[in-house]
Every structure is written in structure tokens, then in C-alpha cells.
């Protein structure tokens, strides 16, 4: 299941705008990798390039390669739809399908993949909702629309939806930024739980969160306004926060963290 990602010389463009330059990094299986850095430095852009969501934006372009356990997801002939089924994504703002029932939301990915077996869908619904720590709260209203849940519940529903298809990798773009502290803690606990089975990449603006949940941390920066964003360094989280090798990292972390 859980697979590693090797990102090599990734360059990302929006039309003519060079958004991210020369990113090379490794994401280990069954661990949490955090992306941190100032706003606009390209964290989301890199994250979206990993499951080929970058290319849905008209005019966008990708150079370089992303290897999922050695297989390039950008190799010719690879179907992006297939890539997205194996690399799941949770967005900054919870986006359940509002009119679909909670149950249908959870199994939406499976249904897209053609699974029809009622019993299997039923099992996956419960397993995924338990996995997302949402089961107890919604088990009595699985047929109610997903749009009727609270923000935190909706985000956990989206996580359930993403893990229902048992992806190889789970990408999370600021999953807690719209949530209250209690929901945030619930999701952080969940991430700690999920990393036993999944490879997780999480973008966060919250240093404490990065320090709490991640095993390794990648710091991105913008050398100058208008320049493409770059990966400054990546390392074990404890080391990045206590003893970074780059001045820029130290400045960013002490400015935001200390």
C-alpha cells in the first residue's frame, strides 16, 4: 500500500509564470512529510503536481518527474485519472459533495472505480469513517447530506473519502486552516494514526503543527518577489526546527516559531 515518492528536478509553470524551480526531494513511505514556507512560495503547487492536479489548471505545465515507488507518474501513457486514484488529496477547505449523503460521499471514489458490491461499500463506509474518527458522530445519519455537517466534521468526511480508496499516498493542503483548535487536534491525532498505513504529505502554516505531526520537514522559500519558489532544505523535523543548515530556514522558523 504505502509507497514512497521521489521528486526529481520538478519545475512548475502557470502559463509563462515560472512558479516553482528545481525541486528535488524524497518522501518516505509510512511517514509524514511537512511542507512549510511563506505564502506564495509554491507549496500547494508542488503538492498538486504530485497527483497530477496541477495540470487541470488551463495553461499550466510540468517539467521533471515524480516517481511513485520508482514509476514516473508523468511518464507518457500514464492516465492522470489512475494517478489520482492512487494518490489521494485533502483540500484546505472541506469540499464534500454537499447534496450527496454522508455514505455516498465516503464511497464516491470506490463507486467511480466501479465497485458496486453493497456489502463491500457498507464495510468501507464504516472502516473509513472510523479511520477518520467520524463514525461515532455520524453513524445514525449516514443518509443525511454531507453538506449538513460542521466544518471540522466535513473535513474529516473528506479525509474518510480520501482513505476509502486506500491510496498509496495521502496529500493534505492545510487541512486544519479553517478549523477550530479542537477539530485541529482531532485531525492531528488522526494523521498520527494514519501514518501507520499511509504515506502522508502535509502543507501547513502552523509551525507547531509541523513539529508535532511530521517526521521530516521541507522548507520552501521565495528568493525574491517574481522569482520562482525553491526548496531551501529538507531534513528530519527535529533537526530542521532545532538546528537548520540554512540561514533562511532559521530566520523563518525563529520569526514564526520563537
Amino acid at each position: 500500500m504505502a509507497k514512497r515518492l521521489d521528486i526529481n528536478d520538478l519545475n512548475l509553470y502557470y502559463n509563462k509564470f515560472h512558479a516553482v524551480q528545481d525541486v528535488t526531494l524524497q518522501v518516505h513511505a509510512r511517514s509524514v512529510t511537512a511542507f512549510i514556507g511563506p505564502s506564495g512560495c509554491g507549496k500547494s503547487t508542488v503538492l498538486r503536481a504530485l497527483n497530477r492536479m496541477h495540470e487541470v489548471i488551463p495553461g499550466s505545465r510540468v517539467e521533471g518527474s515524480v516517481l511513485l515507488d520508482g514509476e514516473n507518474v508523468y511518464a507518457p501513457g500514464v492516465d492522470p485519472v489512475q494517478v489520482r486514484r492512487t494518490i489521494g488529496m485533502v483540500f484546505q477547505r472541506a469540499n464534500p459533495f454537499p447534496t450527496m449523503s454522508i455514505r455516498d460521499n465516503v464511497v464516491a471514489g470506490l463507486k467511480l472505480a466501479g465497485v458496486k458490491d453493497k456489502k463491500r461499500l457498507e464495510e468501507v463506509t464504516e472502516r473509513s469513517l472510523r479511520g477518520a474518527n467520524l463514525w461515532e458522530e455520524v453513524k445514525d445519519r449516514l443518509n443525511k447530506p454531507g453538506g449538513g455537517l460542521s466544518g471540522g466534521q466535513q473535513q474529516r468526511l473528506c479525509i474518510a473519502r480520501a482513505i476509502a480508496v486506500q491510496p498509496d499516498v495521502l496529500l493534505m493542503d492545510e487541512p486544519c486552516s479553517a478549523l477550530d483548535p479542537i477539530s485541529t487536534l482531532a485531525i492531528e491525532d488522526l494523521i498520527a494514526e494514519l501514518k501507520k498505513d499511509y504515506t502522508i504529505v502535509i502543507v501547513t502554516h502552523n509551525m507547531q503543527q509541523a513539529a508535532r505531526v511530521s517526521d521530516q520537514t521541507a522548507f520552501f522559500n521565495l528568493p525574491e518577489v517574481g522569482q520562482p519558489g525553491q526548496l531551501v532544505e529538507i531534513g528530519e523535523t527535529g533537526k530542521i526546527f532545532s538546528n537548520p543548515s540554512q540561514k533562511a530556514t532559521e530566520g523563518y522558523i525563529s520569526g514564526r516559531f520563537g
Binding site: 487541470v56 485519472v81 489520482r84 483540500f91 469540499n95 459533495f97 454537499p98 467511480l112 473528506c158 473519502r161
Partner: peptide, 15 residues
Amino acid sequence: TPSAQIEGALALGAT
């Protein structure tokens, strides 16, 4: 249609 929803479906592997 909110683009967040469209992207949500795409990210699940929807054609």
C-alpha cells in the same frame, strides 16, 4: 459549480 467541488471529484480520480 464551485471549483472546490470539481477539484474534489478530480482528486478522487473522476473522469
